[in-house]
């Protein structure tokens, strides 16, 4: 028997829990910051570089990989940010984590959920990933599990509700999202001046997102946003929100208008 054979460490109460493939949870959290995915010949989509360790044999391929064409056609519908995603396949157990943020898994059953692009970590290919009409958000449709990161634990709220823009993680089952402004700050010359300059006291909470309708709203417990992931530009056309490259991440702003089918700038791919 090896000295590392007993789970729970070396018999001291202070010893950390030791995991091996048999004791690691299956598609569940190891702790608040680490999630374990079990692959049995199946596939998962994950954001580049979020795998921290794995047991077993696995392969990680960019979604541009030719063999994955069919899978990408059925469950990956935002080709313009494809270079940020990889497909893991094989068998074994894999640990996912994101900059020591809280991670949680969510189950969708024939449902839909829209999430801020920077928060989504991984999803099962039974779900389809699409760009949301709301710039900077992605929508998952179908049945399956996905993993999302948040700054602090996530709370679930029922609409009607008004939320702080920075605390919003996403929403499920289509409540209608819209902007809401406190009218005291929007009416009259003084109100306008106050809103613009902050003179005379702006609370910083004059602008909220309002959700009405049936569904669930997901909030994180801080107002510190996770770094936004590029969701890719949408084809320019009349009536398309965010079209014409107006919604871009900082790494994209330097570039010119993106061509349809262009997968990503070389600089971003190499993390420069």
């Amino acid at each position: 028997m090896s000295p590392y054979g007993t789970p729970g460490g070396f018999g001291t109460p202070a010893g950390p829990t030791v995991f091996d493939p048999a004791t690691l949870p299956c598609d569940d959290n190891v702790n608040a910051y680490t999630f374990c995915v079990e692959l049995k010949g199946s596939q998962w989509f994950l954001q580049k570089g979020k795998m921290i360790a794995y047991y077993g044999s696995m392969e990680f391929n960019g979604v541009g990989h030719g063999r994955l064409d069919r899978l990408v056609r059925t469950s990956f519908h935002s080709p313009l940010h494809a270079s940020d995603w990889v497909v893991a396949e094989g068998s074994g157990k894999m640990l996912l984590a994101d900059r020591a943020f809280d991670v949680n898994s969510y189950d969708l059953e024939d449902g839909n959920l829209t999430i801020r692009s920077g928060n989504l970590l991984a999803f099962q290919p039974t779900l389809a990933l699409k760009q949301s009409i709301v710039p900077g958000f992605l929508t998952l449709i179908g049945t399956g599990k996905f993993v999302a990161a948040s700054n602090g634990p996530v709370v679930f709220m029922e609409p009607p509700i008004r939320v702080d823009p920075q605390a919003l993680v996403g929403w499920a089952d289509c409540p209608s999202p819209c902007h809401h402004y406190d009218h005291g700050y929007m009416t009259g010359v003084m109100g306008g001046l106050r809103a613009l300059t902050g003179l005379g006291g702006a609370s910083g909470e004059e602008h909220q997102f309002e959700f009405v309708g049936a569904g669930t709203v997901l909030l994180q417990s801080t107002e510190t946003l996770l770094a936004e992931q590029a969701t890719g530009a949408v084809p320019s056309g009349a009536g398309v929100p965010g079209a014409g490259g107006t919604h871009t991440s900082p790494s994209q702003t330097a570039g010119t208008q993106r061509l349809p089918g262009q997968l990503g700038d070389l600089q971003r791919r190499f993390g420069l």
Partner: peptide, 25 residues
Amino acid sequence: MGEGGGEAFQIRFEGDGLVYVQPSE
């Protein structure tokens, strides 16, 4: 070509022991 798997470098451990990994890269 920029279409890599995002996990181009890995360390493989074999033998008998414990490895500590952190939930951040």
